[in-house]
Amino acid sequence: MPGFPTAMAMWIHGARAVLMKELRMEWRSRHAINLLFMFVLSSLLLVVFALGTGQIEPPLQAALLWIVIVFSAAVGLGRSFLAEEEQGTLLLLQVNVPGSQVLAGKLAFNLVLIMAVMSVTVVAFMGLMGMRIVHAGLLLATLGLGSVGLAGATTLLGALIAKASARGPLLPVLLFPMLSPLFLSVVRATQEALTEGATWSGSATDLTALVGFAGVVNTAAFLLFEYVWTD
C-alpha cells in the first residue's frame, strides 16, 4: 500500500499521461484547435458585420466576448470523450487509468483549449472591435476563473453525451442553463475590467462567485464522474 505522497504522485502521473496523450493526438490532427480558431474568427466576423463600424460600448463588448467564448466551448469541447467512444479506445483507457485521473487529464486538456480560445478571442476583439483593456489583471483573473468553471462543466457534460445514442448538438442544450451563474459573473467582471476606473474591489463579489462556481462544478464533476465512467 503506497503512502499518501506516493499515491498522490501516481495520481498526478496518470493524469499527466492522459493530458500528454490528448495533447499529442491534438498535435497530430490539430482538429479541435483549428475548429475552435475558425469558429471564433467566423462568429466574430458575423458580429462585426452585424454591428457595423461604430464604436461599441464596453458592456456590449463584454457580452459579445463571452458569447463567442461560451459558444465556441460548446461547439469544440464536447468531442473529448466522444472521440474515445468512436475510435474504440475507451476500453483501453478504462483498463489502464482510474476514472478520476482520466477526468483530470481531459479537464486539463479542455482548459488548455479554452485558454487558447480566450486568447484568440481577446486579441481579435482588441484588433477588430477596438476593445480597450483598462484593468488587465482583473480581466486575466476573470478569464482564468471563468475557464476553470467552463472546463469543469464541459468536460463532465462531454462525458455524458458521449454515452448518448442520438447525439446531435446536445452539449449547448445541457451546458447553457447550468452556465448562467458563471456567465452573469464573468460578463459583469469583464465589463468592469473594460471600463475606466476599474478596481479589484468593484468586482470582488463576482470573483468570489466565480471561485465558488469553479470549485463546486469541478468537485461535483469528480464526484459524479465515476458513475459515468464505470459503465
Binding site: 448518448a164 452556465l179 458563471l182 461535483a220
Partner: peptide, 30 residues
C-alpha cells in the same frame, strides 16, 4: 432532452441522474 437521446434504459437512468444533480448544484449560485 438528454433522456430522450438514450435507447438503453439503464444507461439513460444513470446519465440523466448525473446531469440532474450536476446542473442543479449551480442554481443556488443565482
Amino acid at each position: 432532452v438528454l433522456r430522450s437521446s438514450f435507447d438503453e434504459p439503464v444507461r439513460r437512468g444513470r446519465i440523466a441522474a448525473v446531469y440532474n444533480l450536476f446542473a442543479m448544484i449551480t442554481v443556488p449560485f443565482l
